[in-house]
Amino acid sequence: MVDSKHQWKAWIYLSPAIVLLLVFTVWPIINTVRMSFLENYSGLEAVGGATFEFGIGNFQKVIEYKRFINCLKNTILLCVLTVPVSTILALLIAVALNSIKGLQKVLQTIFFLPYVTNSIAIGMVFAAMFNIVGSFYGTQNEIVVTAGIINNVLEFLGFERVNWINAGSSYEANIIVMTVYIVWNALPFKILVLLGGLQSINKQYYDAAKVDGTPRRRVFTKITVPLLSPMLAYVVITGFIGGFKEYSSIVGIFGENMGPVDDVGRLNTMVGFIYDALETNKQGRASAAALILFGIILVVTMINMQVSKKRVHY
C-alpha cells in the first residue's frame, strides 16, 4: 500500500490518465445510458433548450423497427458463420506454419499483412475481385462486359458466373462474399495468437507422444488442441465480440449503401444501425441500440466463458 502521507503524489501521477478516462470513457458511458432513457432524445434539440421525459420509448422503438431486426439478423448470421470458420482455418494454418522450418518467418509475415492493411482498402480489393474490374458500384451492362477475377476463375473452371454484389445479386451471394472477406480479415490476428500458443507448448509433450507411438491425428486432437484451448477460447471470445461490432467490412465491400445498389441497407449491421441513428440526430435511439448491442455481447461472452470453463483444460 502507498503510504497515506504520499497518497496525493500517487493521485497526481495518475491524474492525466484518470482525467482522460473520465472525459472520454466514463462520461460517454454514463451519458449513453442517460440518453437512452430520455424519450426521443436529440442532441440538436437539447442544445436548443428542449427537455425530454424519462421512459423506455427509445428501446421500444428500436425493437419494433424492422430495419433493426434485419441488422440484428445480419450481425448474428455473420458472427455464426465467420467465427468458427476463421478459428478452424487459423488453427490449421498455425499448426502448418509451426511444423515447417525454412520459410516460417517469411510466411508468418505474409499471413500477418492483412492485419496491418486498412480494412476499407482490403474491402475495395475484394469488391473488385467479386465485381467488375475498375468499377465499384457497377451497372448491369458492365457485369456482362468484364467480370472480376473470381468470376473469371469460375468461368475458366466451367461454372456459371455469379452476380456476387452488384444490383440484382442475391442475399446468399452477398453473405458468401462478406463471410470470405471477414474470415480473411480475421485470420492474421488469430494465426498470430495461436502460433504463439503453439510455440509455447513444451516440445517434450510431443516427444513423449512420439515415444508412445501416438498417431498424428491423435497428437493433434488429444494434445495440441487441449493444450491450445486457452488461446482458442480467447480467439473465439474476441472473435464474437469483434463480429458483433462488424461494420467497416460491409462499408469496405458495399460502400455506405450497406448493400447492393438496388437494395440499400440489406446488409446493415447493429453498429451500422447506430451510426444511421446518430447521423439523423436521434442520439436517444442510437444509445438504446448501443445498450442492446452491449447486452447481447455481454450475454454471448458470458455463455462463451461458461462453455470454455468446461472446455479449457487448465
Binding site: 517434450q204 509433450y205 513423449a208 488429444k222 494434445i223 487441449p226 493444450l227 483444460h313
Partner: peptide, 15 residues
Amino acid sequence: GVGLVFQNYALYPHM
C-alpha cells in the same frame, strides 16, 4: 518399445 521418463515428466496437464 521403449518407455521414457522425461526430466520434467512431460505429463499431459489436461489429462
